[in-house]
Amino acid sequence: AVSDRLIGRKGVVMEAISPQNSGLVKVDGETWRATSGTVLDVGEEVSVKAIEGVKLVVEKLE
């Protein structure tokens, strides 16, 4: 699937994400809805860990 190529890629949070609410991330110039187990603020760099349906699962870049 086209989304599989995104796993491991870096992105930037465009709309804040929390465990309760999905947000938006931009990866390779495309905007995706994303979820995370932690709070991520706009502008934070993330990496794509998995894909669930049409949402990316991301975590903060260390």
Rank of each mutant, 00 (worst) to 15 (best):
T35H: 06
G37K: 11
D4L: 08
V57G: 03
G11T: 02
R33S: 13
K10N: 15
G8N: 07
K10W: 11
S22K: 05
G37R: 08
A34S: 04
G11S: 02
D4R: 03
V42W: 05
S18A: 13
S18R: 14
A50G: 13
A1N: 11
E15I: 14
T35G: 07
V27W: 02
S18K: 10
W32M: 05
A1F: 08
V48F: 01
N21W: 11
R5E: 12
G8K: 04
V13D: 00
S3G: 09
S47P: 01
N21A: 13
D28V: 13
T38E: 13
L40I: 15
I17G: 02
D41T: 15
S47C: 05
V2W: 06
S3Q: 08
E44T: 15
I17V: 08
K26E: 12
E30P: 04
G29V: 06
A16E: 09
S18M: 11
E62G: 12
L40N: 03
G43L: 12
E30S: 07
K49C: 05
A34T: 02
V42H: 06
W32C: 04
V58W: 00
A50M: 07
S18T: 15
V13I: 08
T31V: 10
V13A: 03
V42F: 07
L24H: 07
T35M: 10
D4Q: 07
V54Q: 10
E15V: 12
R5A: 11
I7T: 04
T31S: 14
I51T: 07
G37P: 11
S36A: 13
A16V: 08
V39D: 08
L24F: 09
V48N: 01
E45R: 09
E59Q: 10
V42C: 05
L61S: 12
V13C: 04
L24N: 04
V58D: 00
E45A: 11
E62N: 15
A50W: 07
K10G: 07
Q20F: 14
V46G: 02
V58I: 03
E62T: 12
G37N: 14
G8P: 02
K60Y: 05
V57D: 03
G23T: 02
K10Q: 14
S22N: 13
V48E: 01
N21C: 06
D28P: 01
S36F: 02
K10F: 07
K49I: 12
T38M: 14
V48T: 02
L40T: 03
L40R: 02
E15Y: 09
T31I: 15
V39W: 09
A50F: 06
S3F: 10
E15F: 11
V13F: 00
E45L: 15
A34P: 00
V25C: 05
G23W: 03
I51F: 07
P19F: 07
L61H: 11
V57Y: 12
R9G: 05
G37F: 10
I17W: 02
V42A: 08
G43T: 06
R33K: 15
V54G: 15
E52F: 07
D28L: 07
E15D: 08
A16D: 06
W32F: 12
V42E: 07
S22P: 13
G29Q: 08
D28C: 05
L6K: 03
G53H: 05
K55F: 15
R5W: 14
E44M: 11
V2R: 02
M14C: 05
G43W: 07
S22I: 12
L40V: 08
W32Y: 11
Q20Y: 10
V58F: 01
V39P: 10
K26G: 07
V39C: 05
V46A: 05
V54W: 15
E15M: 12
V39R: 14
G11R: 00
L6A: 03
V39L: 13
T31A: 10
V57M: 07
E52Y: 11
V58A: 02
A1K: 03
L24K: 12
V13H: 00
G23A: 02
I7V: 15
G29N: 10
E59W: 07
W32P: 00
E30H: 12
V39E: 07
P19K: 09
V46R: 00
W32S: 02
A1C: 06
V48L: 02
E59H: 07
V57P: 00
T35F: 05
K10D: 11
R33I: 10
V54S: 12
P19D: 05
G23D: 00
E59V: 10
D41M: 14
L24C: 06
G23P: 01
L40M: 09
S36L: 01
I17M: 06
K49N: 06
L6V: 07
S36M: 01
T31Q: 11
K49W: 07
G8M: 03
G29I: 06
G37V: 14
R5F: 06
V54N: 11
G43C: 05
E44P: 00
V2G: 06
V42Q: 08
R33W: 13
L56H: 01
D41G: 13
G8D: 04
R9C: 05
I51H: 05
V58L: 03
M14V: 13
G53P: 03
E30F: 10
A50P: 00
T35A: 10
E62I: 09
L6M: 06
G53M: 04
G53R: 04
G53V: 03
A16H: 13
V54D: 15
V48K: 00
K49S: 12
L56S: 01
V2D: 12
S47V: 12
G23F: 03
V27Y: 02
S3D: 13
V58S: 00
G11N: 01
G29M: 15
A34G: 04
W32R: 04
I51Q: 05
E30D: 11
V27C: 04
S36Q: 01
G37M: 09
V39N: 11
L24S: 11
I51M: 07
M14G: 04
G43I: 02
S22F: 11
V25H: 00
D4S: 06
A16R: 14
E45S: 11
V58P: 00
A34Y: 03
S47N: 13
E52H: 14
V58H: 00
K49Y: 08
V48C: 03
R9P: 02
E30Y: 13
K55P: 02
E59D: 09
M14I: 10
S47A: 11
A34Q: 01
G11K: 00
R9M: 15
S18V: 10
Q20V: 12
K10V: 14
G29F: 07
G53D: 06
W32L: 04
S47L: 15
I51L: 12
R5Q: 10
L56Q: 00
K49M: 07
V54F: 14
V25W: 00
V58N: 00
V13W: 01
A16Q: 15
S3H: 10
V2L: 13
E44W: 12
G43P: 04
K26N: 12
L40Y: 03
E45V: 15
T38F: 11
G11Q: 00
E52S: 10
G8S: 04
I7Q: 03
N21Q: 13
A34V: 02
M14N: 04
E59R: 06
E45M: 14
R5D: 12
K10Y: 13
E30T: 09
D4C: 04
M14H: 08
G8V: 02
G53A: 05
S18D: 09
M14E: 08
V25P: 00
L56R: 00
V13K: 00
P19C: 05
D4H: 08
R33P: 15
S36Y: 02
V54K: 14
V42K: 10
V12M: 06
V58G: 01
G43M: 08
I51P: 01
L61Y: 13
G8A: 04
A1P: 12
V42M: 08
A50H: 07
V12L: 09
G23M: 03
V12Q: 08
A16F: 13
G43N: 11
K49H: 06
K26D: 09
E59Y: 11
L40W: 03
A1G: 11
L24P: 01
I7C: 04
S3W: 06
S3Y: 06
I51D: 02
K26S: 08
V12F: 07
G11F: 01
R9Q: 12
E45H: 14
V25K: 00
R33D: 10
L61A: 09
A1S: 14
S22R: 04
L24Y: 10
V46W: 00
V54I: 12
V27N: 00
P19R: 05
A16M: 15
V58R: 00
P19A: 11
K60C: 04
G29A: 11
S3M: 13
S3I: 11
L61E: 10
G11W: 01
D4N: 08
V46D: 00
D28I: 13
E45N: 12
R9I: 04
V48W: 00
A16P: 08
T38Q: 10
K49P: 01
M14L: 11
T38Y: 14
S36W: 02
L61I: 11
S47M: 15
V2C: 06
I17S: 02
